[in-house]
């Protein structure tokens, strides 16, 4: 599976008007195939702008987006092809459903790929399963379902294109905790079984800490921090200065450290913290 590479990418909104806004400023970035990346950053830091560059929805003001070593904007055909290879689920995707039935809506993407009907059907079933959409809903109108169900349908619609890279913009915003957890599990399962690259935009530090293997933190259109969760969360001051928080477990570990409990700097997940504390308390295993 191919890698993505961004080279000195710059993007300016509303160029040449009084509303000009530099949203991306000289971003250089490599995303190797198969990685699970979480993209973090304060509101307006340019996360949504960055991910729309990955599938060529926005054309860079300067710089290049390389997919598999080739510029995605080299031709119209290449650009169209990249839309199917890099699947993008927008923020609040439930507002883009339009077909009469759930089945047809999930089939819209693969239908645009001109696949044979049998293949489409298989993909719809598979992606519905991955996204947690029950097959009994296939004949329902998407407009009559709940917000959470709609979002799963929209995600299934993108998964059905079998993209090599799945990009999700705040997929869990506004979901209840249980729905949130199961959706994240669904995404993880999809990641494991297909081996595709995942880019997850989120505001939830706890989610980023437990789900992703690499964190990218954006500030004012630039990548400010880039590393494993361990590396990123060991710099709480920098994160705070960017209006972000550290995960609950890391904050708790830090508070304990300040009161004299000696704990390693690298703690960020609840599991690991519990383990370390338990072993400290007398070697009880969990």
């Amino acid at each position: 599976m191919p890698d993505i590479r961004l080279e000195s990418l710059r993007y300016v909104y509303s160029r040449g008007t009084p509303f000009e806004k530099v949203a991306l400023n000289d971003v250089t970035l490599d995303i190797p195939a198969g990685q699970y990346v979480a993209l973090l950053g304060h509101t307006g830091s340019g996360k949504s702008t960055l991910i729309q560059q990955l599938n060529g929805l926005l054309t860079p003001t300067a710089g290049r987006v390389l997919y598999d070593g080739e510029d995605i904007h080299r031709s119209k055909e290449a650009l169209r092809d990249i839309r199917f290879r890099v699947g993008l689920v927008f923020q609040y995707p439930e507002y883009q459903l339009f077909e009469e039935t759930v089945y047809k809506d999930i089939a819209f993407g693969p239908g645009n790929m001109r696949l044979p009907a049998a293949e489409i059907e298989e993909r719809v079933r598979k992606s519905a399963h991955f996204a947690g959409v029950d097959e009994s809903l296939f004949d329902a109108s998407p407009l009559e379902l709940s917000g959470g169900q709609k979002r799963r349908i929209a995600i299934a619609g993108v998964m059905a294109m079998k993209p090599d890279v799945l990009v999700l913009d705040e997929p869990i915003a506004g979901l209840d905790p249980a729905g949130c957890r199961s959706l994240l599990e669904n995404i993880k399962r999809y990641h494991r079984s297909t081996g595709c690259t995942i880019v997850l935009v989120t505001h939830e530090m706890n989610v980023a800490a437990t789900e992703a293997e690499r964190l990218l933190v954006m500030r004012a259109g630039q990548i400010a921090l880039d590393g494993t969760p361990q590396e990123v969360f060991s710099r709480p001051e920098e994160l705070r200065s960017m209006g972000l928080d550290i995960p609950g477990a890391a904050a708790l570990a830090q508070a304990l450290r300040q009161r004299g409990v000696s704990l390693p700097e690298s703690i960020y997940s609840p599991k690991y913290l519990a383990k370390t504390l338990l072993s400290r308390m007398g070697g009880v295993s969990c």
């Binding site: 929805l57 169209r80 839309r83 927008f90 507002y95 883009q96 819209f108 993407g109 790929m113």
Partner: peptide, 13 residues
């Protein structure tokens, strides 16, 4: 604009 982008992302032409 947003909806068009979203549908383009699903291969709408």
């Amino acid at each position: 604009d947003k909806i068009m982008s979203a549908q383009k992302a699903r291969g709408a032409d």
